[in-house]
Amino acid sequence: MKKTMFIAAALVLGGIVWGVLDNVHPFGDPLKTPVDDYYIAHALKDRSSENIVTSLVFDYRGFDTIGEAAVLFTALCSVTALFRQGGRRD
């Protein structure tokens, strides 16, 4: 019974994965590009930042960068809590 269930679930999951992979558009040919075209056309002209990646990270997608800074701060807090000096200090 367990084996039958497992085989059925594997078949269903494999079918889903196969269907998704079969529908992926070819590499280098994205479906919708207006946002990419906007960034490439306007990043240098409006913000005069020659590194488009940096202008994306710090200007167009600034909330993501706040999240990254928060991730680093959380990692620092967890390392501090994990490796702190134990015992009584007096």
């Binding site: 930042s49 940096t54 202008s55 960068t65 800074a69 680093l72 701060f73 620092l76 501090t80």
Partner: peptide
């Protein structure tokens, strides 16, 4: 001329440099 892009770069660089150095120090202490 890129304004806050360059200034935020400097701010995040200061933060990451201090944070990763602190992680190294604390892990060695542990």
């Amino acid at each position: 001329p890129s304004g806050t892009i360059a200034l935020m770069d400097i701010a995040v660089g200061i933060e990451v440099a201090g944070g990763l150095s602190l992680i190294v120090i604390y892990m060695f202490k542990g």
